[in-house]
Amino acid sequence: MSPEPTPFTLAISQAELEDLRDRLARTRFPDRTPGDAWAYGTDPDYLRELVTYWRDGFDWRREEAALNAFPQFRVELDGIPLHYLHVPGKGPEPIPLLLLHGWPGSVLEFLDILPLLTDPAAHGAPDAPSFTVIAPSLPGFTLSFAPDQKRFSCEEMAATLARLMADVLGLDRYMVQGGDWGAFVGSCIAYSHPDRVRALHLNFLPLRRDAAVADAPSPEEEIYLAELAEFLKEETGYQVIQGTRPQTLASALVDSPAGLAAWIAEKFHVWTDNDGRIEDAVDRDRMLADISLYWFTGAIGSSFWPYYARSHGPWPIPLGEKITVPMGYLQSPREILRPPRSAAARVYTDIRRWETLEKGGHFAALENPDTLAAELRVLASSL
């Protein structure tokens, strides 16, 4: 018998909100290292400002209501309470779309793009296909977490979400879109179930160097390798600690909301296309809603596990294997890494769309929801 989903409404208690405010009021801030702001991590001056606003100005109830405006469900699947949004598309024959977030993200990233995908006619695209969107909280992340539950690698998340689509929702054919870990998970689903995935769309390319770059790299691949070397040198400290000692870091962040905010906000600063302030690219309330969701669920430690599994196991797509389903890609100028098409084509053999933006970063659904929705419509129409 297939697992039976139950409707879900997020409702954080007033006592939890008051506890958060009390903890924020007692924050001990670090001193400021001499030098440029953000040069050594989260700027203490910005953190003080953010914590003050989180305590005194941020309206969690408004963000909670925005999420609850969409149909949500939970289902016991593979030993966890899997949470997902299931938003029906309007118009004839909407296309099922599995929409996947990454770290340090959540389904809150999708609140602006959901209406664009499910009701394009109401948003200036009357002839575009619509989508019925299934947007899960990744296993082990925020609302798909319970204390002491098992941890999930990318491959295990892919298997669970494939079961959600087929066994729980009865969907034999669907599209998949993902960024960050969602791109890894979506690629795993497309690799393992090419008969089910109508098309795969990514805004991040999960490529291993020895599979994607030729022995004699092209000029574009040389640029990519240089960017990769700089990233590995300067920007992977979080990966190392999350991939080797996740429990130790979780002990700090699950107890300190200011520490959690510093850890996550630094990624929003580095990974978005901003002009010095995160808010140039992403709404502050939406970022704090994401941070708050990690705080209230206590899921930050579990969300680290894909890094540990990746560091201690094989690459999710076996070396030499190909992903053959139709694929589209949206590249942002401030994405973490920007492999050239030649590199991607060595793994993804049926690239239908390859678009490059002039502005944007890692969080495409937050920074460029209109463009991401339009690209999904074009890819769907091309099928």
Score class of each variant (00 low, 15 high):
175 M>D: 05
117 L>N: 06
356 T>L: 13
86 H>K: 14
303 S>H: 00
53 Y>T: 02
171 L>E: 11
373 A>L: 10
88 P>G: 03
306 P>V: 00
319 L>R: 09
106 S>E: 05
41 G>N: 10
209 R>A: 01
292 S>N: 12
11 A>K: 14
293 L>G: 06
144 S>M: 04
30 P>E: 00
276 G>T: 07
120 P>N: 02
187 S>F: 10
258 A>F: 12
43 D>M: 11
96 P>K: 10
376 L>S: 04
223 I>G: 04
299 A>Q: 06
139 P>Y: 04
307 Y>A: 01
236 T>G: 08
17 L>H: 12
165 M>Y: 07
295 W>E: 03
232 L>S: 13
337 L>H: 09
144 S>P: 10
321 E>K: 07
74 R>I: 01
215 D>P: 10
163 R>P: 01
275 D>H: 15
1 M>T: 11
42 T>M: 15
375 E>L: 04
320 G>P: 01
45 D>T: 12
348 Y>T: 02
167 D>Q: 12
374 A>N: 14
219 P>D: 03
284 R>Y: 07
327 M>Q: 06
25 A>Q: 11
17 L>S: 04
143 L>D: 00
238 Y>R: 05
59 D>A: 13
44 P>S: 08
76 E>F: 10
323 I>A: 00
374 A>V: 07
203 N>W: 04
13 S>F: 01
289 A>F: 11
78 D>N: 14
294 Y>C: 08
55 R>K: 14
83 H>R: 09
1 M>V: 12
166 A>C: 05
210 D>P: 03
210 D>I: 01
265 A>F: 12
69 A>V: 01
237 G>P: 06
130 S>W: 02
322 K>M: 00
92 P>I: 05
204 F>N: 06
230 E>C: 09
76 E>M: 11
28 R>Q: 13
305 W>G: 00
210 D>Q: 10
169 L>I: 06
243 G>L: 04
264 I>V: 12
78 D>R: 14
379 L>H: 06
268 F>Q: 05
318 P>E: 00
286 R>W: 01
260 L>E: 05
376 L>W: 08
25 A>F: 05
270 V>H: 12
303 S>Q: 02
140 G>P: 07
17 L>F: 02
375 E>Q: 15
185 V>M: 10
28 R>K: 12
155 E>T: 15
350 D>M: 06
60 W>Q: 05
320 G>K: 03
332 S>N: 07
36 D>T: 11
380 A>M: 05
307 Y>S: 02
311 S>T: 00
35 G>H: 10
335 E>I: 08
277 R>Q: 13
66 A>I: 07
108 L>W: 09
152 F>I: 08
257 P>K: 05
295 W>F: 08
28 R>G: 01
282 V>Y: 09
205 L>C: 09
238 Y>M: 06
173 R>C: 09
106 S>G: 15
364 A>V: 12
343 A>Y: 03
150 K>A: 11
195 D>N: 12
224 Y>W: 08
21 R>H: 11
193 H>I: 01
111 L>E: 02
63 E>H: 15
95 I>G: 04
